[in-house]
Design a protein around this nucleic acid. Structure first.
Length: 409
RNA sequence: GUGGCUAUAGCUCAGUUGGUUAGAGCGCCGGGUUGUGGUUCCGGAGGUCGUGGGUUCAAUUCCCAUUAGCCACCCCA
């Protein structure tokens, strides 16, 4: 039987050229996070199902997780998100950790969903969280961090919008409107505010609250939360533009106060790219003293859509290999290769019996910028020719000269 | 979970109103140039037409199922 070359549904293979883009994205995220004083951590992909049952949104746990029973009969879940794991991490050493604690990670997560644009079954997600700051300073910092990452990718204010809301205020207004069903159902409906027209929305709302018109009026206003206004002001003083969005709710149940999302303004995407908020109750759910927390998750799939549609992916991403040493005829190139590698240069060899033009073509195809042709003449004279495939020019010189060019390329 | 579109060579796609050996461009491999690429010329390899079943004398083409991909909804990164 012939094996299929297709991978599992909703997952991706990363060829070197894909990996370069991924490394670029993750590298940029890592740099900016570290510049804000965030430290990297990691946790296992597998977690007990208990971690999610109470905290994540119900739909995600019930219908969107990969879960199975292990050989000992324990229910195991492949993490659908990182927040419960990092909360567990902090809770288990609650006392001995130093605060404010700033953490980030770029884990792969799994959700059993129908794949489509911006959504796959395996995705990576930058998670940045700050623990131990009660004041709005933490919310400001996290949003500023998210914004800084966007800007480091070359994004400008026309490309995305940061929407901010207070879940506390939203809950208050929902309660004032007189809940007929449940607060969660109303909030879920509010999430659809932008997608429905006014009459359809108010009609639906009328089934859930006593005073739909009052609630609608609030949702379509600029919002009147002092906290949100203060937040937006502080962001502005740091050069970050935030917009009040009273209907913003976010899907996860664990958010307690400020929530935000970053919206992709490109018509090809036109969707919420990522978001986050404050979840003060999650660490405390492990039976320790609660720790105030603000964080966000930034998915690689939507981010890559964003970068591609706005043309922000650098096209100069090159392989780590600096040079190919190509043998000409029957010659031993190992000494030359060794000498270059000792200088810290990444060297691939091509000692296949093919003709030299094929070797140059192959190096070009692999994206490797330099090729060094080594035959008997070069070895005996000690003078080598280094070809820059990109600029199409040759550099002739001793091995040290060649090495110095490659080192500070 | 619901709905729509799609599946032919490595890639992008044509095509067969059901009928012998299924095509193009690009890419790939080899040669013209026994030590120098991206141009050009010549030659070559590569497809059980996604998979399974049905209708038919005959299916890549029609029908059903299934799988995968894309898109929208739900939800969300």
């Amino acid at each position: 039987m012939k094996l299929s070359t297709l991978g599992y549904k909703g997952t991706r293979d990363f060829y070197p050229e894909d990996m370069r883009i991924r490394n670029y994205m993750f590298g940029t995220m890592r740099q900016v996070c570290q510049s804000f004083g965030y430290e990297e951590y990691d946790t296992p992909i597998l977690e007990s199902i208990d971690l999610y049952t109470a905290k994540t949104s119900e739909e995600i746990v019930n219908e969107q997780t990969y879960s199975f029973d292990d050989r000992g009969g324990r229910r195991v879940v492949m993490r659908p998100e990182m927040t419960p794991s990092v909360s567990r991490l902090v809770a288990s050493r609650r006392q001995e950790l130093g605060y404010p604690l700033r953490l980030f990670s770029i884990p792969n997560c799994f959700r059993y969903e129908r794949p489509q644009r911006g959504r796959l079954r395996e995705f990576w997600q930058l998670n940045a969280d700050v623990f131990g700051i009660e004041s709005i300073d933490a919310d400001v910092e996290i949003i500023q961090l998210a914004d800084a990452i966007m800007k480091r990718f070359g994004a400008t204010d026309e490309m995305y919008e940061i929407r901010v809301n207070s879940r506390q205020l939203l809950k208050k207004r929902v309660n004032e409107a007189g809940i007929k069903t449940s607060a969660n159902e109303v909030i879920r409906l509010i999430d659809m505010f932008e997608k429905l027209d006014q009459t359809a929305f108010v009609d639906k709302l009328a089934g859930h609250v006593e005073k739909p018109d009052a609630l609608y009026g609030f949702l379509s206003s600029d919002g009147d939360s002092l906290e949100v206004k203060d937040l937006i002001m502080q962001l502005e003083s740091r050069g970050v533009r935030g917009v009040s969005s009273p209907s913003l709710a976010r899907g996860f149940d664990y958010y307690t106060d400020i929530v935000f999302e970053v919206f992709d303004k490109n018509p090809d995407n036109n969707r919420s790219m990522f978001g986050g908020g404050r979840y003060d109750g999650l660490v405390g759910a492990f039976g320790v003293e609660p720790v105030p927390t603000v964080g966000f998750g930034m998915g690689d799939v939507t981010l890559q859509n964003f970068l591609e549609t706005w043309n922000l992916v650098p096209d100069k991403l090159r392989p780590a290999t600096d040079v190919v040493v190509a043998s000409v005829g029957d010659v031993d190139v190992s000494a030359v290769v060794q000498a270059l590698r000792e200088q810290g240069i990444n060297v691939a060899t091509d000692t296949t019996p093919r003709k030299l033009d094929k070797k140059i073509k192959s190096a070009d195809k692999l994206g490797i910028r330099y090729i060094m042709m080594v035959g008997d003449n070069e070895v005996s004279s000690g003078t080598y020719v280094l070809r820059d495939i990109v600029d199409s020019k040759d550099i002739t010189g001793q091995i040290d000269t060649i090495a110095s060019i490659l080192v500070d390329r």
